[in-house]
């Protein structure tokens, strides 16, 4: 597509769309992207944050011993600082 000149143009396509954002610290977000900038700071609404919590990570090596808990929370509006963003993608469509 000729209009896409840089990676950010791909993110632009997802404006006001629901996106999936992977963050550092085992966090994931899904929400509607409203704005972004060159630092990948994002403004999102209707956000569901999913946090992976691995318990007993100090004592037991990852594997059967460690249990993974998933915590979720919802936010109406969220500002995401760009330095934590690993990945922004449109949600998988069927």
């Amino acid at each position: 597509m000729e209009t896409i000149q840089e990676p950010f143009d791909l993110i632009r396509l997802s404006l006001s769309e629901r996106v999936f954002v992977k963050l550092r610290g085992d966090r994931e977000l899904t929400g509607i992207l409203h704005a972004y900038d060159g630092h990948m700071n994002l403004i999102m609404s209707d956000v569901v944050e999913t946090i992976m919590l691995v318990e007993g990570v100090d004592a037991v090596p990852p594997g059967p011993g460690a249990t993974v808990k998933v915590a979720t929370r919802k936010m109406d509006m969220l500002f995401v600082r760009g330095d934590g963003v690993i990945l922004v993608s449109p949600p998988s469509r069927t």
Binding site: M1, T3, L13, R93
Partner: peptide, 11 residues
């Protein structure tokens, strides 16, 4: 396609 729509909309 969805992507075409998005691109067209941005334009």
């Amino acid at each position: 396609t969805h992507r075409q729509v998005l691109t067209a909309l941005e334009a």
